[in-house]
Write a protein that binds this DNA or RNA. Sequence first.
DNA 1: GCAACTAATGAAAACGTTTTCACAGATCCT
DNA 2: AGGATCTGTGAAAACGTTTTCATTAGTTGC
Lengths: 327, 327
Amino acid sequence: MSVGIRDVARAAGVSTATVSRALGRGPVSEALRQQVEAAVRATGYRPNLSARRLRSQSTQTIGLIVADIRNPFFTAVSRAVEDAAYAAGMRVILCNTDEDPDREALYLRLMEEERVTGLIFAPTRVTAEAMKAGDLDVPAVLIDRAGPPGAHDSVVLDNVAAAAQLAEHLWAQGYRRIGGLFGATSSTAQERQAGYEGALRRVGAEPLARVAAPNAAAAEAILVEWLAGDDRPDALVLSNGLMLMGAVRAARRLGLAAPGSLGLAGFDNEPWSDLVEPGLTVIEQPVAEIGAQAMALLFDRLKAPDQPVRKVTLSGRLIVRGSSRRA
Amino acid sequence: MSVGIRDVARAAGVSTATVSRALGRGPVSEALRQQVEAAVRATGYRPNLSARRLRSQSTQTIGLIVADIRNPFFTAVSRAVEDAAYAAGMRVILCNTDEDPDREALYLRLMEEERVTGLIFAPTRVTAEAMKAGDLDVPAVLIDRAGPPGAHDSVVLDNVAAAAQLAEHLWAQGYRRIGGLFGATSSTAQERQAGYEGALRRVGAEPLARVAAPNAAAAEAILVEWLAGDDRPDALVLSNGLMLMGAVRAARRLGLAAPGSLGLAGFDNEPWSDLVEPGLTVIEQPVAEIGAQAMALLFDRLKAPDQPVRKVTLSGRLIVRGSSRRA
DNA sequence: GCAACTAATGAAAACGTTTTCACAGATCCT
DNA sequence: AGGATCTGTGAAAACGTTTTCATTAGTTGC
């Protein structure tokens, strides 16, 4: 049927061991290496990776578990992870959990069965809080959302500082009733809320925070109601790119699109953030860097499994555009 | 070390064959099945998927090869593919080619080595044209871009009709010098160009088509030059979402943002398409349907390998917004 | 010149499953 | 009642590699 290493060995007049060594990095004489390579070409041999993985006990595969690849933040991070993985001769298996802890548990088990070499995981708050050191029997790096300190390597944004920066910026623009809408499922959203509240208290303002599912539709629904009420804020901090989009929609539905009528500032700079009039003021996350750093941490951990747990905190960059300007 | 099926067998007091059957779908008495399940729980056994794949000669893995997961079209399609795959107990390996034929060849070989059960592939024009029936030894479905008729199953948009619809719409709005900018690497872009040119000729207008790399930066650069010249068009058809974004940028840079000063119509409806003032007129592709149909074709092909090649053509839907309105 | 090492190679074991094969016992048909 | 057919089970082979182990030939050191 399919051509295997035995066929190559026969064609080259050597043993299977020699073929294996010639294709990998064993000690093989130059002459035989040539013969083997010729035989490989002649037979059209393709190594069977399942067999290789079984025997070598190394899958060269990394698992990537995120909430939803359609969230532009995860899209960008995953691309960076994949680039790093393929550059290192590894493959990536991607799973979407939709922020559902049950699916997280399911996929974690699947990753164990895959015997993945390493895992990159953006857990919900529920799952993250339950995670202990040595919990997973796979080396793991948490991204975007860290668990309890010391449990796992992680790479996160300085969410407190970033959210504070947004709130302070809106305050400096002259807004005085600055509301905030934050995601319900991630530790990241909690940290952003804390940063927002701290900044407002520091300037003597009252925080007005609400919580919603971290998607555009939920944010829009809540905000349409909130912004129509008497206690409506004159500016908003949004906890991620999807919720910021929901806020823009809500503002337009209520006729609050004019600059200054509702200040908006949020997270995630996207290719279209400057095209939405009058431009969205956002914290830009270093998405490529997050993915690359996660892979770097993972590789370090594989090399030195017992080194102390590391947490890499990256800073966001405030990009001021028209949505936070005051009339 | 790690617990294997032998350990489970010993704990349950049965043979490994019985454990395998109890976990799969072999004929096992209810009593033994219970014992095995208890033993699995007691030992914390996780089947080794590499071993399973090797022995069963079935990887339950599908390969997904696209240009760039950050292109929102591919993001959405890939999510649909993954949902269908995991629902069927399969895994997905994703590869980004960046429209590079060399990387396409590399990843195709990789997929063969993985012994993927099936392949979903969006090839560049170069690669697609070179593909023959029986070329790949893996069942494959081409998406977005089809190869030579009869070579492989495929699911594509009716690009000719969709592009014609855009051109006709702009004509009906009163635009008379309707330009077009199309991608250079995909058969899809060629078909869209043909549809655009056909529609214009039908109404007696002269097509003004140009070609560029299918990304926002390249489109913007070309258009800034084109729109500044004497022969500038008064409306544009753009060949995909990224190029449409480039067109919006170019128009703004040249002060052509006012409604009616430059009509714009393109492909790919995205969550923010209505937020970019005055709203982008686009052909919406049924992205989820494309992914789901591709998986359906693939499963059918796996069940009946010798059935005739099928091509599923889906229709786009014109969404008219402000960008194509005339002053 | 001979022991001791080194390098290259092949035979065979090993990786952890599923599947084949054989067999024992139960059930069925005339 | 006696073969034929089914059902559940275990022993062992098989999947296609890599790796261990032994062996040979070649080199070095004294």
